[in-house]
Structure formats: structure tokens, C-alpha cells
Computed example of a mutant assay.
Amino acid sequence: MVKIQPFQVEQWMDRLETTPGVLNIAETCAASVSVDELVQMCKDKNAPGPLSLSTKLTYGAIRGSEKLRQRVAALFDRESDANALPADNVIITQGAIAANYLLFYTLVGPGDHVVCVYPTYQQLYSVPESLGAEVSLWKLKAENGYVPDVSELEGLVKENTKMIVINNPNNPTGSTTPKHVLQEIVAFAKQKDIIILADEVYNPLYHSLPEGQAAPPSILALGYDKTVATGSMSKAHSLAGIRLGWIASRDKSIVEGVAVARDYTSISVSQLDDQVASYALSEPVLGPLLKRNLGLAQSNLALVSAFVDKYSSVCSWVKPTAGTTALVQFKKKGEVVDDPTFVLDLLEKTKVLFMPASPCFGLGQDFKGCVRLGYVCDAEVLKEGLSRLGQYVEENLL
């Protein structure tokens, strides 16, 4: 029997984000946009609109429209030394969460072993475990900037290791796994014939890298066929409401296996979602949309950084370099706070919401006192949230 562990971060979000008057700085999407705003961003004012209202609403293209799959495939060509990814190597899904689930459902089961970075989105280790696979956590360390230490892989893998799972940029830490580390992971996996799954849902929001460090390419760009990347329109592209993501791989057998499994679940995505995503990924729209979100991430991160500096006696972090989330630890009189209690008390007294890390991203006492803060929301929401948080800190922690 499949054993499902509670998906803690989603349950916390579902329970609390509808609190009346909430200032939600737990949200992990770049500030959402409307279809009207997408049209306003479009640099080609003569381009067709995002929706064809005359299209018959059949199931549509089962794997996603050719136009959309071509535009998703083009995302993987950035800094790639490999050949262009064919559209046939892309399957469109209901968000990255469905993409990840389908991959695990297709590729792992009892008798398999999976190595997964940690901390990360709980789905990436709980789902393979629920399907009967053994999971070993590849623990990221704050002192290493939450970048994976490839030298640890040899001690983690087993003879039956089927998959290594990474998340780049990382949720919740906002860390970046640079290109040279990705290359080391690929070299290790290739030698042992292990599949690499990279959840790249926050790609390409590499907004605050150290000077001289380039944004890393997709895992698909590094010359190993047994790599799979998942992504979506939710995080970097501000369109969580259309529930659209993808699976891409250079290994056609993986793509075909997923297609077979997918017939038992969702069959296809909504044609309306497909059309809006195709429009958002078109050249005249994608550039302005990503420019807007990268700029928002940089300016908002500066606000959080100033807050952490101001209250450095009670809070600390490893400053994010990418994505939309940060892991911040709070203390009171030198002792880390109980983060679930802290989050609930803050919400009750100020209406400011972020997520407690120990139940949502940790096992046991891991990440005690830490919260996940989503900072690429509307700037005014973040400013007001930090203002109220600062008042709370002065009244309760200093």
C-alpha cells in the first residue's frame, strides 16, 4: 500500500494564506500577472492575442501543442553546447508538481534507491519514498552556501541507486548550484549510469550571483542523455494560475515512458492554459516578463538584506543568489525560536505570514528557528510586511 506523508508546507499554506487581511510573504511565485498585463508587456503590438476564442475546447494536443513544446524546448538552449532540444522531447503537464510526480511514478519503485538534495521541496523525497523506493538525503550545508558537495555522493549512492534529484535554484534556501558543480554531478552520474532529475522551477531567476559568476545552464545542456528537467510557468514566469509545467529530457525513452504513465492521470492540459503559456513564452513577451521579475527580485532582496542587517542580533541567513525564497533564522536571548510558534504568533499579532522551516522543510530538529520567506511578491506587500515584522522583533525578540 502506498504510504503518503503529509505535505507539510502545502498544508501550512492552505490553512493560513487565506487568513483575512494577511500580508503574505510566504508566497514563492514572482508577483503574479494578469493576461492583460502580459499583453501590455508584449513588444510586438501587432502580435496575435493570447487566446483564440474560436478554438473548439477538445482535449487538444495530448502532449501539449507543438507551438508550446517548441517554446519550452528553446528555454533549454541557453549556454548549451549540445544540439537543440527537439519539441518531441517535451511533455506539457499540470504544473511542475505533476511533472515531478509523473517522473517518479514512471521511473522509481520498490527495490530502487534515490538520492535527493535536502532541504528542498518535500515532494522530491516524499513521493519516491511513498512509491516504495529508499531515499537518502544529500544534506546541504549553510557553511557551503547550501551548494551540494559532490565528494559526498560516493558515500550516498548504492548499487541500486536509480536517480539523483537536485533543485536549482534551491527552495527554500535560494542557493545556486554553479555550472562546475553540475558538471561534477553529471560526470559522477554518467559513470554509474544514474538518472539525474533537476527541478528547475525557479530557473532562470539567477538574479544576485557573485560578480564574475555566470548563471548555470540547465542540466540538459551538459552532455548526458539521462538527465531530466522539470519547470513551470508558476515561479519565474508569474503565472501559477494557469497550472502549466513541463518535463524535458534528451532521453526519448524517458519521455515515452512518462507519456504512457500520463494516460492514466490527466491525459492533457487545458487548451486555454496552453495558449496563455505559449503567448507568455513568445519572444516579444518572455523578455519583458523576465526582466520585470529579475528586477523585482533584486530590489526586493535588497529590502530583506537591509532588514537582516538591521536586526542581525536576532536573525541570520545565507543570502540567496537566485529564486524567490530565503531561509532566515530568528533567535531570542541567544536561543533559536520555536519556528511554528513564532510564525503563528506573528500572524496573529501582525497578519504577516511566512512558513516555519522545521516542520515544512526539516526532519527532526533540522532548521529549527528558521522560516522560509518569499520576497519576490509585490514590493509594497514586502515593505509593509517587513515593517510590521520589525515592530514585532523589537517588541518580542530584542
Results as ranks from 00 to 15, higher is better:
L156S: 07
R15C: 01
A306C: 05
S266A: 08
G212Q: 00
L131W: 13
A84K: 11
L294S: 13
L373I: 15
V276M: 08
K235A: 04
I91A: 12
E380L: 13
A87M: 04
D339V: 12
V285N: 05
K226N: 13
R388L: 14
A277D: 00
L16C: 09
L131F: 13
P356F: 02
A236K: 05
S316K: 14
S52C: 04
S253R: 04
K331L: 06
D112E: 13
A133Q: 04
N24W: 11
H237K: 13
K43L: 15
D263A: 14
M13A: 13
V35L: 08
S234T: 08
I164P: 11
R250I: 07
Y101K: 14
N170P: 12
A259D: 13
Q391P: 00
S175L: 03
Y224T: 02
L346K: 03
P356H: 04
T120E: 08
G245T: 03
P210Q: 13
N89K: 07
E200P: 12
P6W: 00
K349N: 11
G374T: 15
G223F: 01
V352P: 07
W138D: 08
P320C: 13
S316P: 09
G60R: 12
Q213Y: 02
G95R: 09
G241H: 14
V314M: 05
F76W: 06
